[in-house]
Amino acid sequence: MYLTALNEFDFHPSLSHSAGVSLVLFTAPHCGSCRVWVQLLQNLSTPLIQHAYSVDVQTATALAREYDVFHLPSLFLFVDGRFHAPLQAEAQPSAVVAAIQHALNAPAHEEP
């Protein structure tokens, strides 16, 4: 799965045009765990996810504040361009897929 980099200017327009399920990974270049997640998502193959995006918090600090990102990496689930839920899972493909399925079966959260 290819991760498209988003910034503060194209984040909302890109997501609003993203039909289906989208994952957004908030990351930073200095974050070792973030590199693990980037590699995991790039190698993840599941029909559940139609779009995958990454946001560098060093260059998109306003987005990090908007989504209350305090810990890296942070992963968020969007459905049809709208925020659905924060996603928490171990950095294992099966755990990520299970977390996505669980979140999709639950009601949407309020956007931070």
Rank of each mutant, 00 (worst) to 15 (best):
M1R: 12
M1E: 08
M1I: 13
Y2M: 15
Y2P: 15
L3R: 04
L6F: 06
N7E: 07
N7S: 11
F9S: 11
D10R: 05
D10I: 13
D10L: 12
F11G: 10
F11W: 10
F11D: 06
F11I: 13
F11L: 12
S14W: 07
S16E: 14
S16A: 15
S16G: 03
A19K: 15
A19V: 08
V21N: 02
S22L: 08
V24S: 06
T27S: 15
T27L: 09
T27M: 14
P29Q: 14
H30C: 10
G32N: 14
S33T: 15
C34Q: 10
R35P: 00
W37Y: 10
Q39T: 11
Q39C: 04
Q39A: 10
L40N: 04
L40G: 01
Q42W: 03
T46N: 06
P47C: 12
P47Q: 08
I49A: 05
I49T: 04
H51N: 05
A52E: 04
D56G: 01
V57A: 04
Q58I: 13
T59S: 12
A60F: 02
T61N: 11
A62P: 01
L63W: 07
A64W: 00
Y67A: 00
D68E: 13
D68I: 02
D68M: 09
H71L: 08
H71C: 04
L72E: 00
L72W: 01
P73T: 09
P73A: 09
P73I: 03
S74P: 05
S74F: 01
L75T: 05
L75E: 09
L75W: 00
F76L: 15
F76K: 15
F76A: 13
F76E: 15
D80T: 00
R82Y: 12
F83E: 08
H84P: 05
L87R: 11
E90H: 02
P93N: 09
P93F: 02
P93Y: 01
P93A: 07
S94M: 10
A95M: 06
V96K: 03
V96N: 06
V96R: 05
V96S: 06
A98P: 04
A99C: 09
L104V: 03
N105S: 12
A108Q: 08
A108Y: 04
E110P: 10
E111G: 12
